[in-house]
């Protein structure tokens, strides 16, 4: 039973990573930048939801919705203010700016909400499911998290393959100049992808805090980096890759914690990244880039 319990926890945590990684990978695919502030948007999403539920006493659904809306706007504002002016700048400048935005968000949260951890109340208030005469207990949040992850992945896949806007995003990700010649406004498209990614980060934040109920200004940073790892393992830019990488990483982390040791778990997670990059630099589902002759 221990094995099954760990597996379920792993899939659940992995689903959160997957949702964050989907945002990472979408933004990377279209804007060709690593938005290291993505993890901190998760934390902001968590706080918005917390304030709505605890301080304002709003219903859970409204709190989640406001959290998504808030993060969507935050993502678009950050893109507009910090990244758009650097569109033609070298990628290193953009990367450093993203790290700056990350610290800005963390310290803003520190100013607003203080350093003391908040206890986040799970948004899913249902009894646990018991199997095998109570030997296997599955938390309802685990099920909700996994289902949400699947739903998001399917929606994103349909969005990018079926809708005009989604196809325009793929066009921008391949060749921004050619996309412009088609009449696609590249700036609007990039803004849109930040909105989607940040909205997903809000959902991830709410789910993460519901599973691990400690909310601090630094809550988002480690999951953010792990989700980035997941996106790289899956093949950055690939939607199914991000989901696969996220779930794999969650399972590896929980199993490492259970069978090897809590202290070593993070080292093992990042060790997997290093090994992965050595064996398959393009990631599990990533496209190998061939040099054109």
């Amino acid at each position: 039973m221990g094995f099954l319990t760990n597996l379920i926890n792993g899939v659940s945590l992995g689903s959160v990573y997957a949702i964050i990684a989907l945002g990472y990978t979408m933004v990377y695919g279209i804007a060709k930048m690593l938005n290291f502030a993505h993890g901190d948007v998760i934390m902001v999403g968590g706080y918005i939801c917390f304030v709505c539920m605890n301080n304002l006493g709003l219903p859970v659904a409204v709190a989640i919705l406001l959290s998504i809306v808030g993060c969507t706007c935050l993502g678009m504002v950050v893109e507009r203010a910090a990244y758009k002016p650097l569109r033609e700048a070298p990628s290193l400048a953009v990367l450093i700016t993203a790290i700056g935005v990350s610290y800005f968000l963390q310290n803003s949260a520190l100013l607003i909400w203080g350093a003391d951890p908040k206890v986040f109340k799970s948004v899913v208030d249902l009894p646990s499911l018991k199997f095998f005469e109570g030997q296997l207990v599955v938390g309802p949040i685990n099920i909700v998290t996994a289902l949400t992850c699947v739903l998001i992945m399917v929606s994103l896949t349909l969005f990018t393959s079926r809708t005009k806007m989604g196809k325009a995003m793929r066009a921008c990700s391949e060749d921004k100049g050619a996309a412009q010649l088609m009449g696609i406004n590249v700036n609007t498209t990039i803004s849109m992808v930040f909105a989607i990614g940040s909205g997903l980060a809000a959902i991830a934040g709410v789910l993460l805090c519901s599973t691990y109920p400690t909310l601090m200004p630094t809550t988002g940073s480690l999951p953010g980096i792990k989700a980035f790892t997941a996106a790289v393992i899956g093949g950055i830019g690939s939607i199914p890759g991000a989901a696969l990488g996220g779930v794999l990483l969650g399972i590896i982390e929980i199993f490492a914690k259970a069978y090897i040791g809590t202290q070593l778990a993070d080292a093992i997670v990042f060790g997997v990244l290093i090994v992965m990059l050595l064996i398959r630099p393009a990631g599990l589902l990533g496209k190998e880039i061939h040099e054109k002759v």
């Binding site: 005009k164 793929r170 391949e174 060749d175 100049g177 010649l181 088609m182 009449g183 496209k287």
Partner: peptide, 30 residues
């Protein structure tokens, strides 16, 4: 550049620059 097509001007660029990962149909849709 993205406003040129609605003015009635299209450029078929040097090196073709078609969207490699998109299908022929999707390229045309774009």
């Amino acid at each position: 550049a993205h406003k040129m097509v609605s003015r009635g001007i299209a450029l078929c660029p040097e090196g073709r620059r078609i969207f490699q990962d998109m299908t022929v149909r999707e390229n045309l849709e774009m």
